[in-house]
Design a binder for these strands. Structure first.
Length: 287
DNA sequence: CTCAGCTCCTGCGGGC
DNA sequence: TGCCCGCAGGAGCTGA
């Protein structure tokens, strides 16, 4: 479910809470995620300190002392929940009230300061894995990934080369993590709207100028969403502790039959299905 | 190789 | 009100 900006927001939420802390206790309640948890999951993580954290594509990576990295993907419905350490109980009165963990909590980490990090994922399209930190690029989850859209390897000329000769719809190629990572179904529609490019165009027919505009639109769309995520992060972690899902307004996504938001357009947002995924666009603004 | 279509899983909202 | 159907922001696999 989460795309790059949501994953980046989750990273920024958990990193300050986890880096420098030790995984005091690890609980694997349900190993059958998208791929099964790796052998020895609990033993390999328990007692290890988190020394750094980063993101590649839609994967979170927690680098541990001892040379291994915990890899987390949230899939469609995965969430990480931060739960502060309970207050001391020295003067506790009355019966304690047990608060149930979020439903579909499959993995729980308790840190050495008492904080708990819960991974909940109803659809179980998410995954966790453990791999050697010094060889992550070769790991099967990362080996065939394209460039980061906010990094130096992504540009109009890069897209032009990637699209050359391709007859697939440009929207489908934006979703292809071998072409560029991090763009999901929402930001694909949003970026194509911003670039004024019709989602059904055969990718190979885009001009160099189209590719320049599209690359810029992808960057701008993701950047804005990360900024929006950062501002919700300030209000919102602490309150509920649930990370990564923030409301912001989309210009076309999920706006079928609504008026186009471009000044003076007067058109209507359309919804079509491309390879089983909904696509939203304005046929007056996008050619 | 390229591309379209299907699949995993569960929850929710709309329509009847 | 209750039930059924369609749909959901990911991504890997199959087969043409």
């Amino acid at each position: 479910m989460p795309e790059l900006p949501e994953v980046e927001t989750v990273l920024r939420g958990i990193a300050p809470r986890m880096i420098g802390r030790r995984l005091a206790e690890v609980e694997a309640r349900r190993p059958d995620l998208r791929r099964p948890l790796p052998a020895g999951f609990v033993q390999r993580l328990t007692g290890r300190a988190v020394i750094a954290a980063d993101r590649r594509a839609k994967y979170l990576r927690l680098h541990l002392e001892g040379g291994e990295t915990l890899i987390v993907h949230l899939g469609m419905s995965g969430r990480l929940v931060i739960e502060d350490a309970p207050p001391p109980v020295a003067f506790h009165h009355g019966p304690s009230i047990a608060v149930a963990d979020a439903p579909h909590t499959h993995v729980v980490f308790r840190l050495d300061d008492g904080t708990r990090i819960l991974f909940a994922d109803p659809r179980r399209f998410g995954l966790m894995d453990i791999a050697a930190t010094d060889d992550l690029d070769a790991h099967d989850l990362f080996a065939h990934l394209g460039p980061e859209p906010l990094g130096n390897g992504f540009s109009g000329p890069y897209l032009a080369r990637a699209f050359e000769g391709r007859r697939a719809p440009v929207k489908a190629l934006l979703l292809d993590q071998r072409v560029v990572v991090g763009v999901g179904n929402i930001y694909a529609s949003e970026s194509l709207f911003e670039a004024g490019i019709h989602p059904a165009r055969a990718a190979g027919t885009l001009s160099g100028e189209d590719c320049d505009r599209l690359a810029a639109a992808v960057r701008a769309t993701l950047d804005r969403a990360i900024t929006a995520g950062g501002s919700t992060l300030r209000d919102f972690v602490g309150a509920s502790g649930e990370l990564g899902y923030f409301q912001h307004s989309f210009r076309v996504y999920d706006r079928a039959d609504a008026p186009c938001s471009r000044e003076g357009c007067g058109g209507t947002i359309e919804r079509v299905v491309q390879s089983n995924r909904a696509t939203y666009f304005c046929s007056r603004c996008q050619a």
